[in-house]
Write a protein that binds this DNA or RNA. Structure first.
Length: 576
RNA sequence: GCGUCUGUAGCUCAGUGGAUAGAGCGUUGGACUCCGACUCCAAAGGUCGCAGGUUCGAAUCCUGUCAGACGCACCA
């Protein structure tokens, strides 16, 4: 009966403790049912954990008020519970503050960098497909979301004991290379491209679309070049490789700034020679039909448009490569989940080819998960690479770093390795901002908002962490783990401890919902609670016992902030 | 036309069917002889798009409706 909660492995689970107490008093429900009824009240005056008795009302055939009032008399004295109150149909439990604070802080101080970590994913591989920029197109702010959401999920899974595999499914194959080759041959030159890099590639790509509007024949020409690529034409492939090299060099600059690495860069071209077998397999399984000259999998039965596998000119499509890649990844990594972090506008595409995998008879079709996110717009306008309407991610990050350096020069000009700290905080501001609301929401990019570091921002959390570090440095002595919890009796200290207590739960929830913003918002809550405590109570006081107890709290906050920041891909500099 | 997602304070957003719907920004007014003021406190600001329904109880679930975003065959 006591093993139904994973999270009680490492620390006190207060809901479980209370559900066990209640289990004996409420025979009609088992411990787990009671556990699920318990909630955290909205206000401290209503206690720390509450049991709403309204549902019990029907079972026990009594009013909720009466049930609460009867139960309150039956709850036996418990060392970890200060008092229990019945208030208008709620049974409110007030924790014994001293033992709670002691339990939480000693757990954090013992686990340190591992506070919140678990081993629930031991031996399980999780493939995470994220970032996936298109070669020969600039890395712009629209690519940031996939990159940072995927990176955060990677860290979260790893923290929970999984073995994540980060795959950058580079968009290094497809018709756009045909367009680029045409554009290069007509308007480009080796010198200008080598000098201008990806910006020059973008310029000729934009020009292609302008010219193609006037002359649709260019599109046909581009398609022919792509067909040549698929047929192994030497000239086409050499140009392709060249474009790819230029692009990767550029992308790696951004990944370095962000501090992101991948386990695999197997992009679309990697699957080029693996697709014929899959197309053959689709044929053998009688899934492929011809329609308007193309080869499709008909999904009408499932209320979806058909999934295109082979174009009428014989070349392959996005879905062909995704299906091939999924099968390859299953064989290679034996994943428990394969997660695709892409824009919500691709939802139907994933739904379609997931269905194709199922129709092929693969029982792991339900291990494929699309993690969609909302669209980034620029003011009122949509970002468009074709129209050249973009904010380059490298420019954005460099702006943010520059802005941070200005602030440091103003506030803390003697700081060592200013440049590195400015990078960590400037990048942190951008990443934090991108991960601060639910991923499904559309975002409208604004320079003003992203470069404003006041309030609920990455720098705020990082600053709070640095301040905690500063206190611990000034204390000179290590925190004695045998602190006296009785000295941490104020409401600010208790609230900090309560917030610390929630962290492991938040990590689990973020993993289950594939939602890094849960961590981001938690960090703001924790930083706010800590800053209130910090303002209200002096920490480096004369009284050694009191000082040590408060430093224990500071230390626990420091570890938790650092762990949380790490999970969303941010650095936690000790001095800023 | 069909489908998916979104709609909560002036703005950006939180909010597990549960108690008086919360933050930040902005506005107004405060707090540094004191551990780092990128901080903290306070005030003002709400028909949770709208209308029904389910429920002891709905911002949350259901139906309808309005508005916006996105998607719906050879782009990814």
């Amino acid at each position: 009966m006591n093993n139904f909660r994973l999270r009680s492995i490492n620390m006190l689970d207060i809901k479980q403790m209370i559900s066990e107490i209640l289990d004996e008093k409420v025979p009609s429900l088992n411990s787990e049912e009671i556990y699920n009824m318990l909630e955290y009240p909205p206000d401290d005056r209503m206690g720390d954990v509450a049991l709403p008795c309204f549902k019990l009302s029907r079972i026990l055939r009594k009013s909720p008020v009466q049930i609460a009032e009867e139960l309150v008399k039956e709850i036996p004295a418990h060392p970890r519970i200060e008092k229990v109150e019945a208030v208008s149909g709620y049974l409110n439990f007030f924790l014994d503050k001293q033992s709670f604070v002691e339990d939480v802080l000693s757990t954090v101080l013992k686990e340190q960098d591992r506070y919140g970590a678990r081993d629930i994913g031991k031996g399980k591989n999780i493939v995470i497909d994220y970032s996936a920029p298109n070669i020969a197109k600039p890395f712009h702010i629209g690519h940031l979301r996939s990159t940072v959401i995927g990176n955060s999920l990677y860290k979260i899974f790893k923290f929970l004991g999984y073995n994540p595999v980060g795959v950058n499914h580079l968009g290094d194959w497809g018709t756009q290379f045909g367009k680029l080759i045409v554009a290069y041959k007509k308007w480009g030159s080796k010198e200008t491209i080598e000098k201008g890099g990806i910006k020059e590639l973008l310029a000729i790509y934009v020009r292609f679309h302008e010219e193609a509007e006037k002359d649709p024949a260019l599109e046909d020409e581009a398609r022919q070049w792509f067909v040549k690529m698929e047929q192994g034409d030497k000239e086409a492939l050499e140009l392709w490789q060249w474009f790819k090299d230029i692009s990767l060099k550029e992308f790696n600059k951004v990944y370095d700034l962000l501090g992101i690495k991948f386990d695999s860069y197997a992009g679309e071209s990697f699957y080029e020679d693996k697709m014929p077998a899959v197309i053959e397999e689709l044929k053998e399984k009688n899934l492929l039909t011809e329609s308007e000259g193309a080869m499709i999998v008909d999904l009408e039965e499932y209320d979806m448009p058909p999934c295109l596998i082979v174009k009428k000119d014989g070349s392959t499509l996005y879905a062909t490569r995704d299906i091939t890649a999924a099968i390859y990844r299953k064989n290679t990594y034996d994943f428990e989940k394969c997660i695709y972090v892409t824009g919500a506008e691709q939802s139907l595409h994933f739904k379609q080819w997931f269905k194709v995998i199922q129709l092929m008879g693969y029982d792991w079709y339900d291990q494929l998960i699309h993690v969609p996110f909302g669209m980034v717009s620029l003011g009122d306008e949509k970002l468009s690479t074709r129209a050249g309407k973009v904010v380059l991610l490298e420019d954005l990050l460099n702006q943010a770093i520059k802005r941070t350096l200005e602030i440091i020069n103003q506030k803390n000009p003697n700081l060592e390795n200013k440049e590195e700290v400015a990078r960590q905080m400037g990048v942190g501001a951008v990443v934090f901002s991108d991960l601060s609301s639910n991923r499904i929401k559309d975002v409208s990019f604004s320079w003003d908002e992203i470069l404003n570091f006041d309030g609920e921002t990455g720098p705020y959390v990082q600053y709070t962490h640095a301040r905690a570090c500063s206190l611990l440095r000034k204390a000179e002595k290590e925190v004695d783990p045998n602190f006296d919890p009785a000295l941490l009796s104020t409401k600010e200290e208790f609230k900090v401890a309560k917030t610390l207590y929630l962290f492991p739960d938040k990590v689990i929830t973020a993993m289950k919902e594939l939602e890094p913003s849960i961590i981001t918002r938690y960090l703001i809550d924790l930083a706010q609670e800590f800053n209130r405590f910090y303002h209200e109570h002096p920490i480096l006081v004369e009284d050694e016992a009191l000082r040590n107890a408060r430093l224990a709290l500071v230390s626990a906050v420091k570890y938790t902030l650092k762990n949380g920041l790490q999970l969303i891909g941010l650095s936690a500099p000790e001095r800023v």
